[in-house]
Write a protein that binds this DNA or RNA. Structure first.
Length: 569
RNA sequence: UGGGGUGUAGCCAAGUGGUAAGGCAGCGGGUUUUGAUCCCGCCAUGCGGAGGUUCGAGUCCUCCCACCCCAGCCA
């Protein structure tokens, strides 16, 4: 006979209504500020934005920022823009834009209107630069980069005014035009704001507004050869879009006076306010874009979506669901202190989500044949298994059962102490969703390896305990010997053995965990797994959570994370 | 040594002058056909330190200490 081999867990709606069990949490400082701004009437509707530079893939730290910005808009009835801060064509690429859009969508957020680009405001930004020149508040400086550094002073000493600082407005206008028209080579001059070379805040020492980059831009092509700096662009972009709360990370706090200076001195259409929060630091992982790029470029990992990477794409390929990431971001909070979050917290969020939502299946990683000597050779019956132990909305599975089955080699021992709850010769074990069996003997090869176990089923124990009252101590998973799926499995572990591979001057490459990936072949699983759905993460009972890999040519499952294991002994 | 920021348990984090929430981790115990989940209990006489104000201080004041960020024509 054949059994129903429709893929298990194929329903598209796996979710319970997670919104209902969202625990209430005290509002964090940004929520308190916004609440006040709404109540006072200052910002009846808030507008936030997520402003990535397309120079790499998004990682879990960005997820925190995304959840914050989109989340704030969501909870306060506002909107959030997705804007690429693409002011540096030398480092950016369309590939990153596409990947970032995909990741934000996957996380489940929707932005207001179209995707925005800082580059679409280049003309306005240029005109405002001219405005500043006309106000006598900006000048073209021909100091070289090295000279400029010397003139800038140090943290404890004031800088010196540039010799070009007192050029006339007319001269500056003419020079800036020459810059824009390409008469100057890269690095020969810049446009600077005229603020205060003695400011204790380095950012106010005549910051650069425009620099020359004779590069083709991924959005604007060759329209421009001068590009605005972050400082000159960001606040004005926010003002153009009517952003009310411009949220960034702590390291930008001392840019705030400059952010405000531009908003004050330029005829911008709105006055956004910048707020800073502490970026996410996770132990045992790196989140610096430079290091992630190096891991990818030097092929220490299998691309930006390698399941061991903390990139959104990597977490997705690993089998983590967006709900888990959002839960994690909610758990860690938003403050101005820069702590290091324990990965155990991320792992908890992942397990918590998957436990509630992953359809169950049985899989045997290290197959060991078990022959049920008292079971007829030509008989096959169908066992029934729940899709999920606490949910009846997930499809029930039908499991063929016959004389020969596979169990995991780790689940059998010739002899063992009382703590071992699996199969032992002379003892009984429950086959999950099937019979209780008792082992009689095992067969070994010339090397002494156990290659087969001979056991007996105890009659009448499907759904019941043995009539003789001798109950098995444990339950193990199994797979039918005839009808099953065969596949490879990739067991992932943390990429770094060191708690802080990202710290200062460490040679992070030398801290890579040599066993962060263990590949297994010839694993067997219940027949439905042959048609496993990409994008669904299953729980392989007693083993952990697994999802079908998106890249492998042969059927392969990636281990998202193991089950919590509190077994001691 | 200039400026900006932060210090509450092993980790994250509430607390907004009235006597230290919650989560993670850990440790006990219960349920269980997943050594999972779930449930129950334990886990800061203490809030970076020292003074001070107050009937009362994690919250206010003073001084001190530690850590993070800033001297890119990166963001």
């Amino acid at each position: 006979m054949t059994v129903n081999d429709t893929p298990i867990g194929s329903r598209t709606h796996l979710d319970n209504d997670n919104a209902n069990d969202k625990p209430s949490r005290p509002p964090h400082f940004l929520e308190q500020i916004i609440q006040g701004d709404i109540q006072s009437g200052k910002t009846p509707q808030i507008v936030t934005r997520f402003p990535p530079e397309p120079n790499g893939y998004l990682h879990i730290g960005h997820a925190k920022s995304i959840c914050l910005n989109f989340g704030l808009a969501e909870t306060f009835g506002g909107v959030c823009n997705l804007r690429f801060d693409d002011t540096n064509p030398a480092k950016e690429d369309q590939e990153y834009i596409d990947a970032i859009i995909r990741d934000v969508e996957w996380l489940g957020f929707r932005w207001q209107g179209d995707v925005r680009y800082a580059s679409s405001y280049f003309q306005q930004l240029h005109d405002w630069a001219v405005d500043l020149i006309e106000q006598g508040k900006a000048y073209v400086c021909h100091l070289t980069a090295d000279q400029a550094r010397e003139y800038r002073g140090t943290l404890t000493e004031a800088g010196q005014n540039s010799p070009y600082r007192e050029r006339t407005i007319e001269e500056n206008l003419a020079e800036f035009t020459k810059m824009r028209e390409g008469h100057y080579d890269e690095g020969t001059c810049v446009l600077r704001a005229k603020i205060d070379m003695a400011s204790p805040n380095m950012n106010m020492r005549d910051p650069i507004l425009y620099r020359i980059r004779k590069q083709t831009h991924h959005q604007t092509g060759d329209d421009w050869c001068i590009y605005p700096t972050y400082d000159f662009a960001h606040g004005q972009e926010d003002a153009i879009e009517g952003i009310t709360h411009s949220i960034c990370t702590l390291e930008f706090a001392d840019h705030r006076p400059l952010y405000e200076w531009f908003v004050q001195h330029l005829p911008v259409p709105s006055e956004p306010t910048q707020y800073e929060f502490g970026r996410l630091n996770l132990n045992y992982t790196v989140t610096s874009k430079r290091k992630l790029k190096q891991l990818v470029d030097e092929q220490h990992v299998d691309g930006w979506d390698d399941p061991r990477l903390p990139t959104i794409a990597g977490l997705r390929r690993r089998g983590v669901r967006p709900e888990a990431l959002r839960k994690f971001c909610d758990m860690i909070g938003v403050t101005k202190s820069d702590g290091v979050v324990d990965v155990a917290m991320l792992e908890h969020a992942i397990r918590d989500d998957l436990d509630k939502n992953a359809p169950r299946a049985m899989c045997v990683l290290n197959p060991l044949k078990v022959t049920l000597t008292n079971y007829p050779e030509d008989k096959t019956e169908v066992m029934h298994a729940q899709g999920h132990p606490n949910r009846d909305d997930l499809e029930e599975r039908e499991l063929p059962f016959s004389r020969e089955i596979f169990i995991d080699a780790d689940d059998f021992r010739e002899e063992a102490n009382k703590k071992y709850k699996r199969l032992v010769i002379g003892k009984r074990v429950r086959l999950r969703n099937a019979y209780v069996i008792e082992a009689d003997e095992c067969v070994k090869d010339e090397q002494g390896n156990i290659v087969e176990v001979k056991a007996r089923v105890i009659e009448g124990t499907v759904g019941n305990n043995p009539e003789d009252g001798i109950k098995p101590k444990g339950v193990i998973q199994w797979v039918d010997g005839k009808q099953h799926a065969t596949f490879d499995v990739a067991l992932y572990d943390r990429l770094f053995t060191d708690e802080s591979p990202d710290a200062g001057d460490k040679d992070f490459l030398s801290l890579i965990n040599p066993s962060s990936l263990e590949k297994k072949t010839q694993c067997v699983g219940e027949i439905g797994l042959a048609n496993a759905v990409v994008g669904t993460t299953y729980q392989f009972e007693r083993e952990g959570y697994f999802c079908r890999d998106t890249r492998s040519e042969i059927l392969t499952f990636n281990r998202t994370i193991g089950l919590r294991d509190t077994f001691v002994g």
